[in-house]
């Protein structure tokens, strides 16, 4: 049984490594991901972030602009997730403690 599990894991790793050989070269500036225009001839969003971040928000750090301005509603969702995680720790453990008493 354990041997079967190891075989499955090795097969999984082999499939993943075989698939990763067809990925684009790491760091190649000619990747489709880094290109100016995408395959469907629409502008790639990352280039817009690089070029217009300072003009839009006067902030040199592009990651901050993407985090706080362009994707601010997404960040708000993340913050609510963190907040909910904290509330869950309070609720679960408080109930446990009351049962012990």
């Amino acid at each position: 049984m354990k041997l079967l599990k190891f075989a499955i894991l090795a097969l999984f790793a082999g499939v993943l490594i075989y698939a990763s050989n067809d990925l684009p070269y790491r760091g190649d500036p000619d990747n489709l991901m880094h290109a100016e225009r995408s395959i469907t001839d629409t502008p790639v969003k990352g280039n817009y972030f690089i070029q217009e971040a300072y003009n839009d928000a006067r902030t040199p750090n592009m990651v901050t602009v993407v985090l706080g301005d362009y994707r601010s509603i997404d960040t708000f969702g993340e913050q609510v997730v963190i907040f909910t995680a904290g509330l869950i720790t309070i609720l679960v453990l408080r109930k446990q403690r009351r049962r012990e008493e």
């Binding site: 839009d56 928000a57 006067r58 902030t59 602009v65 706080g68 301005d69 960040t75 913050q79």
Partner: peptide, 16 residues
């Protein structure tokens, strides 16, 4: 507007 975005990002960063 651009400088308002600057300060808006600062405010929400403090909140985060």
């Amino acid at each position: 507007a651009a400088w308002l975005r600057y300060y808006g990002i600062l405010i929400i960063e403090v909140g985060i």
